[in-house]
Every structure is written in structure tokens, then in C-alpha cells.
Measured scan of single mutants.
Amino acid sequence: RPRTAFTQNQIEVLENVFRVNCYPGIDIREDLAQKLNLEEDRIQIWFQNRRAKLKR
């Protein structure tokens, strides 16, 4: 699968959610997927990668 290119707006929304909860449940991820026009699994991976970035 090709790399997902997130828009600046999508990143802002994801970062705002991350600040509140870095482990969002499936319900939050599915809601975000619908709002941001992305697949839920892409959102899940984004949070996984963002948590890894935080640990660095």
C-alpha cells in the first residue's frame, strides 16, 4: 500500500486528540476516521507511530 499523506488539517486534529488521549479506543478512532476521511487502521498506525516518536 502507498504511504498515506496526511493534510495539515488532519495532523492538527490528530495531534489535538493525542494531547488529550494517546491511547484512543476504537470508537474514537472510527469517529476520527469518518471526520477526517481516512481509514481507521491508518489512524491506529498514526497513534502507534506518534507514541513511538514521543518516546524518542
Rank of each mutant, 00 (worst) to 15 (best):
R50Q: 14
T4R: 14
F6A: 01
F18E: 01
Q44N: 11
F47L: 01
Q44L: 10
A5G: 13
F18H: 03
T7G: 06
N9G: 10
D27E: 13
L36H: 02
Q48V: 11
D27N: 12
A33P: 00
V17W: 00
E12D: 14
T4W: 05
R19G: 05
Q34V: 05
N21W: 03
R1N: 15
Y23F: 06
C22E: 14
Y23C: 12
I45T: 13
V17D: 01
Q44A: 13
Q10S: 01
Q10P: 00
N37G: 13
I26V: 11
A33R: 03
L38Q: 08
L32G: 00
A5V: 14
T4C: 15
R29V: 12
F6N: 05
Q34H: 10
L54V: 10
E12C: 07
V17P: 02
T7E: 06
E40L: 07
F47K: 06
V17C: 08
V20K: 13
Y23M: 05
T7I: 05
R51E: 03
N9K: 09
I45Q: 13
R1G: 05
E39M: 04
Q8F: 05
V17E: 06
I43W: 01
N37V: 04
W46T: 02
V17K: 04
T7C: 03
A5N: 15
D31K: 15
F18V: 00
F6L: 10
N21I: 04
N9Q: 06
Q48W: 01
Q48R: 13
R51G: 03
L38K: 03
N37T: 08
R29E: 00
Q34I: 10
E12A: 08
K53S: 12
L14I: 07
E30H: 14
L54A: 07
G25H: 14
E30P: 01
L38C: 14
A5L: 14
E15P: 05
F47P: 00
T7Q: 04
E12K: 15
I45V: 11
V20L: 09
N49M: 12
K35S: 05
F6M: 13
E15G: 03
R56D: 15
E12Q: 14
T7D: 14
I26S: 10
F18P: 02
K53F: 07
E30R: 14
W46N: 07
E39I: 00
R1I: 15
I26T: 07
Q48A: 14
R42A: 13
C22V: 06
L38W: 01
R19M: 04
N49F: 03
R3I: 15
R3K: 10
Q34T: 12
K55D: 06
V13H: 12
I26L: 14
L14D: 02
L32S: 01
A5W: 08
A33I: 02
D27V: 07
E12Y: 08
L54R: 04
N9C: 07
E39Q: 09
D41C: 10
D27P: 10
Y23E: 12
K55L: 04
N16T: 10
R51L: 02
W46A: 02
I28G: 02
W46E: 02
N37H: 07
I28S: 05
L14P: 02
T7L: 06
Q44C: 12
P24T: 00
N9F: 08
P2C: 12
R3G: 14
K55E: 15
L14T: 05
L14K: 04
E40T: 10
N16L: 04
E30N: 15
K35W: 02
G25S: 10
D31L: 06
R29K: 02
D31E: 11
Y23I: 02
R42M: 12
R1A: 15
P2H: 15
L36E: 00
V17F: 04
E15Y: 04
Y23D: 08
I11T: 09
N49R: 07
T7V: 03
K53V: 08
N49G: 04
Q8M: 09
K35E: 12
D31F: 15
R19E: 07
A5I: 14
W46F: 04
N9R: 11
W46M: 00
V20C: 08
I43E: 00
R3V: 14
V13Q: 09
R3L: 12
Q8N: 07
L32I: 06
V13P: 03
L54W: 08
R29Q: 07
E12W: 02
F47C: 01
I26N: 14
R42L: 09
E12P: 00
L36T: 02
L38F: 12
Q10K: 01
L54E: 14
I11Y: 05
E15F: 00
A33F: 02
N9M: 15
E39G: 09
I26C: 08
R1V: 13
N37Y: 03
W46Y: 15
A52S: 10
N16W: 02
R19K: 10
R1M: 12
L14W: 03
L54I: 13
V13L: 04
K55V: 03
R29N: 01
Q10F: 00
F18A: 04
V13G: 04
W46C: 00
E30L: 13
K55F: 06
L36P: 03
L38M: 07
Q8W: 03
L14G: 01
E30K: 14
L32P: 01
E30S: 08
P2D: 15
N9P: 07
R50A: 08
V13S: 08
F47Y: 05
R3A: 14
E30A: 11
V17I: 10
L54G: 15
G25Q: 02
I43Q: 01
R42H: 11
V20E: 10
K35V: 02
P24W: 00
R1C: 13
F6I: 11
A52M: 07
R51C: 06
Q8R: 12
V20S: 13
D41S: 13
C22I: 13
N21D: 06
C22S: 14
A5M: 15
E15C: 04
T4L: 10
L38N: 04
A5C: 15
N49H: 08
F18T: 01
R19Q: 09
R51I: 07
C22W: 11
Q44W: 07
K53R: 13
G25M: 02
N37L: 07
I45G: 11
Y23L: 07
C22P: 13
E39F: 03
I26M: 06
D41T: 12
P2A: 12
K35F: 03
P24K: 14
L36C: 05
W46V: 00
Y23N: 13
Q8L: 04
E39L: 05
R19H: 05
V20Y: 03
Q8T: 08
L38R: 01
C22Q: 14
D31I: 14
A33K: 04
N16I: 00
Q48C: 05
Q8H: 06
I45C: 14
P2S: 15
E40C: 06
N16H: 02
E40P: 15
N9S: 12
Q10D: 07
E15I: 04
R19C: 06
K35R: 08
L36M: 10
R56Q: 15
Q48D: 08
N9D: 14
D31H: 06
T4E: 15
E30D: 09
L36K: 00
R19W: 03
I11H: 12
N37R: 10
V17L: 07
N37P: 11
N37A: 07
C22K: 07
D31T: 04
F47E: 00
L36F: 14
F6K: 02
N9W: 06
A52N: 11
D41P: 11
D31A: 10
R1Y: 15
L36W: 10
Q48L: 04
A5F: 15
Q44P: 00
A52E: 13
I28K: 01
N16R: 06
Q10H: 04
Q34W: 10
R19N: 08
I11V: 09
Q48M: 11
A5P: 14
E39R: 07
Q48T: 15
Q10W: 01
